[in-house]
């Protein structure tokens, strides 16, 4: 069995060798002396080439870290004052936390967080979103504050309110998705009934209905046939959304910066992108829009027509 295995592996011996699964001495037996030297040089060259092409984020982090260490010695007094201030702040914050029982949940770049609320309601936070609520008044008033995007599965009970910058959403027990950023506000109802209050006007959503307000555009209402938002399954889907917001989401998912100064970022995008592979996500968004993207430095990308 073992012999058979090595035979199969040797069929594409170069691919095994460059991965380090085949020793130099083994390769030497398979190719001529000239070839062997040429391949060794090629391997080294590839290694150097790829290293030099590699993004330098970690280098920058290390520089910051090293600078930090060096400045520490000089700024001793400042450090003392800062640490006392920090301690004071910490205790004040701690006190405030005990006092109003506020709970804050935050998700980072490319991260999804599932949160169980006190009544077993479930919230899934999409990347770079924040949700907070107060434990104290929970029994009388189910109320959470959201900035970003989240999918709610609310247990039946008293009124449940999601407060956002763009408006409030009230339900009794249902499943719905809320996305609220600076200029983007969208609520999709998946189950039950959802009431959205926006600019003092009330809108009632039935299952598959949605409410959307982008920037200063008029309010839109689209129908969705899915049972769950696709982003909870690792894919963000868009229907006629200005490219600007898709780019914002890409930045949030992959912790990168995208420069779109050269293109018209208000063109409309319909489609989806995968959260796991950045290159695929880029292809599905930018190729579809006929855009080129160039990696400039580490995690900065520039878009061009």
């Amino acid at each position: 069995m073992k012999i058979k295995n090595t035979n199969i592996e040797n069929e594409f011996y170069l691919s095994q060798w460059i991965e380090g699964n085949l020793a130099d001495t083994e390769l030497k037996k398979l190719v001529s002396e000239d070839d062997f030297l040429a391949y060794k040089k090629l391997k080294k060259g590839i290694e150097v080439f790829c290293d030099l092409e590699q993004p330098l984020d970690t280098s920058f982090e290390r520089i910051l870290h090293r600078m930090d260490k060096k400045t520490k010695i000089r700024k001793l007094h400042l450090k003392w004052i800062a640490s006392i201030a920090a301690m004071l702040l910490f205790f004040m914050g701690f006190y405030a936390l005990i006092n109003n029982n506020s709970v804050l949940n935050k998700s980072s770049f490319g991260e999804q967080k599932t949160i169980a609320l006190l009544d077993n309601s479930k919230v899934i936070l999409n990347a770079k979103s924040a949700l907070n609520y107060s434990k104290k008044g929970w029994k009388n008033k189910r109320e959470v504050f959201l900035n970003g995007e989240a999918f709610f599965q609310v247990e039946k009970g008293s009124t449940f309110t999601v407060k956002t910058k763009n408006g409030n959403i009230t339900v009794l027990g249902t499943q719905f998705n809320v996305k609220s950023t600076d200029t983007f506000f969208e609520v999709i109802c998946y189950e039950g009934k959802v009431r959205v209050v926006h600019n003092n006007k009330e809108y009632i959503l039935n299952p598959t209905n949605s409410f959307r307000k982008i920037n200063k555009n008029p309010i839109e209402s689209l129908n969705y046939s899915r049972k769950k938002p696709t982003w909870t399954l690792g894919e963000s889907t868009y229907r006629s959304v200005p490219l600007k917001y898709v780019i914002e989401d890409l930045e949030k998912q992959f912790n990168i910066q995208i420069n779109s100064a050269k293109i018209n970022n208000s063109s409309i995008y319909t489609g989806s992108f995968n959260h796991h592979k950045m290159d695929l996500a880029f292809k599905s968004v930018f190729d579809a829009m006929g855009l080129k993207y160039n990696k400039t430095a580490s995690n900065i990308y520039i878009l061009d027509n």
């Binding site: 594409f12 170069l14 691919s15 095994q16 070839d35 040429a38 391949y39 090629l42 060259g45």
Partner: peptide
């Protein structure tokens, strides 16, 4: 995986020729 290895092998063969 075989197909991946085949492409990689082919790539290296070709690169060795071109760089030479």
């Amino acid at each position: 995986v075989k197909a991946v290895e085949k492409r990689m092998h082919g790539a290296l063969l070709k690169m060795r020729k071109i760089t030479d």
